[in-house]
């Protein structure tokens, strides 16, 4: 039987919007793959890009960082900083030819349960197509 390949997607969700949106997806019984596993942070701006980098190098199929929509930040402007930091990390990946698609930034509000489920589903599909994170196979990494 083809067991299929299930990539791990590690997610960091801000507690005011995206984590709440993820809860709402569950409350609404919207279904998405178990591959995604989330950790709550106060604000997306708490997440040092280095943490995302580390998750990538540890072989996470995808790394999702989600926060309130720009302008909606519970901490006024945190997500604007998140966005710049993420842009820098992505540019580094792109320049080095690393798969920046394994890093994803998403804005998910507290009422966007469906969006969370959609992001979880689509991102899992995308990562499935990409296959396993090469970091996980490199013996000299």
């Amino acid at each position: 039987m083809d067991k299929g390949f299930t990539p791990r997607i590690t997610a960091l969700l801000c507690q005011w919007c995206s984590y709440t949106g993820a809860d709402l997806a569950g409350t609404s019984r919207l279904q998405y793959p178990t591959s995604i596993i989330a950790m709550k942070v106060m604000c997306s701006s708490r997440v040092d890009p280095v943490l995302l980098l580390k998750a990538y190098l540890s072989g996470s199929g995808g790394v999702l960082l989600a926060g309130c929509h720009p302008g909606d930040c519970h901490y006024e402007v945190g997500n604007y900083h998140t966005r710049r930091r993420f842009a820098i990390l992505k540019a580094i990946f792109d320049t080095l030819g690393l798969e920046s698609a394994r890093l994803k930034l998403s804005w998910i509000s507290a009422s966007e349960g469906p969006k969370f489920a959609q992001v979880a589903n689509e991102y899992t599909d995308e990562i499935k197509k990409m296959g396993e994170n090469p970091s996980k196979k490199k013996m000299f990494l």
Partner: peptide, 13 residues
Amino acid sequence: QLFSAFDSLEMVI
């Protein structure tokens, strides 16, 4: 805390 939590995860399911 954050690094430990991530480090604890199996990256292949």
